[in-house]
């Protein structure tokens, strides 16, 4: 089987994206770079390679990492560690180009380096983040955020909305769709019967309706319906213990009802290894789970561990899809 063709988007050039990409590629033996390309600016990537002390070329040439160039507007306004419209625009163009490549079948998966939301907005692209941008570019109706590490995986019923809004989104339909998306993904990864746990929304799962009724009125039914489809799923289970049980390998995946419910335990147990995977798009996409980290960008401090994990996960997704 030929190597997975994966495009890594550069992210915001003022952030840590370029250096974690360069660091990750440098950490891979040349044979393991086969199939990888970077979508971004050649000069920025060459500078990042120098920063991390890697003898790594980008573009044409023997041993160089293939580069899909995107034009960089107003290069002079892009400053290390600062928000700029030009930086946001560069990040946007890299993602847009990578999506074109993925939709045309030229690549098998996209790995994204972080972009900065404020910079993206300054460039006139009003999206809440990568995931929303990808949904728009691919025409997807909805998507699901999966946080995955070897220790713990969680998929979210809702993500970037206020907690109050999240309580409204814990509906039978959404919970069921989230269970199904997680189930399908783990099946694709080769688990014959993924064991899924659904976390409750309220403390103690509402304790029989004393502290909230979403479990009784919405979540129970979603779990029953998923069971009816033959999915191995338990719940709703109290959120304060379900992640511990998953860590003890009782479950392969936890369905979290809101952003922090899934993010707190996952980041706690696997801060550097947690990969952000978007499910429900017509393209495969993984991402680092950190931001642009402007405070440490271009200082040689950012570690490529998370980028390596994101690349490895994308490769696994492609390999399992055959």
């Amino acid at each position: 089987m030929s190597a997975a063709r994966i495009a890594i988007t550069m992210g915001d050039p003022s952030g840590v994206g370029p250096e974690v990409i360069a660091g990750a590629l440098a950490a891979l033996p040349p044979s393991a770079r086969t199939g990888l390309c970077v979508v971004g600016d050649g000069a920025v990537m060459a500078r990042a390679a120098r920063l991390v002390g890697a003898t790594l070329g980008f573009g044409e040439g023997c041993g160089a990492v293939p580069l899909v160039p995107v034009a960089l507007a107003d290069r002079a306004t892009i400053v290390d560690g600062a928000i700029s419209a030009a930086g946001g625009e560069a990040a946007y163009r890299a993602v847009a180009r990578a999506v074109e490549l993925a939709l045309s079948g030229a690549i098998d998966a996209i790995v994204t380096a972080p972009l900065n939301k404020a910079a993206l907005h300054a460039a006139g692209h009003r999206y809440d983040g990568h995931t929303e941008l990808l949904a728009k570019l691919t025409g997807a109706k909805g998507s699901f955020m999966l946080l995955a590490s070897d220790k713990l995986a969680s998929i979210h019923v809702s993500t970037h909305v206020s907690l109050l809004e999240a309580t409204r989104r814990a509906t039978t339909t959404r919970v069921l769709a989230t269970i199904q998306a997680g189930h399908a993904h783990f099946r694709e990864l080769g688990l014959a019967e993924p064991r899924i746990a659904v976390a409750g929304l309220n403390p103690h799962c509402g304790e029989g309706g004393l502290f909230g009724r979403e479990e009784l009125d919405e979540i129970n039914l979603a779990v029953e319906m998923a069971k009816g489809e033959g999915i191995v799923v338990s719940g709703p289970l109290p959120a304060d213990t379900v992640f511990h049980r998953a860590l003890k390998v009782e479950f392969d995946l936890v369905v979290a009802q809101y952003h922090d419910q899934g993010h707190i335990p996952t980041k706690l147990v696997a801060f550097d290894e947690t990969v952000n995977v978007t499910l429900g798009l017509p393209v495969r996409r993984t991402s680092v789970d950190h931001g642009t980290a402007f405070d440490i960008a271009w200082k040689g401090l950012a570690r490529p561990t998370n980028m390596l994990a994101a690349i490895a996960y994308a490769r696994r997704m492609v390999a399992c899809a055959g």
Binding site: A239, D240, F243, L247, I264, L268
Partner: peptide, 15 residues
Amino acid sequence: MYHDQALIPIKTIDF
């Protein structure tokens, strides 16, 4: 700010 935000980390760190 709420019950599970306080208890999830405790029980995940040291059950």
